[in-house]
Amino acid sequence: MRKTLRFALRFVAVIAVVALIQVALVAPPPAGNPYASALSNVSVGSAYAFPINCPNNSCGGKKGCRADHGFYCTTSSGGCQTSKCL
């Protein structure tokens, strides 16, 4: 019985090591990284036709927005907020 148990434990240990090696070999970079595969959804973002023009303005002046490429300004009674166009 002891022999059988030892045999089984050794077998499980070998399988575990083999499985870990496989995972390590094929593991992608950690999630949240700049190395998006061309197949990932992040790369799909480059092939998306924006339906709305970027207004190209940012907060400026006494009350309102001023021209500023790549940004987008919203004004309200609370003030003015500049956001980046997507």
């Binding site: 339906p51 709305i52 207004p55 927005c65 987008y72 919203t74 004004t75 309200s76």
Partner: peptide, 15 residues
Amino acid sequence: AEVCLECHTPDHSDH
């Protein structure tokens, strides 16, 4: 949402 955003664009409806 796209139906609304067809006209309520940042350029014409900034709030």
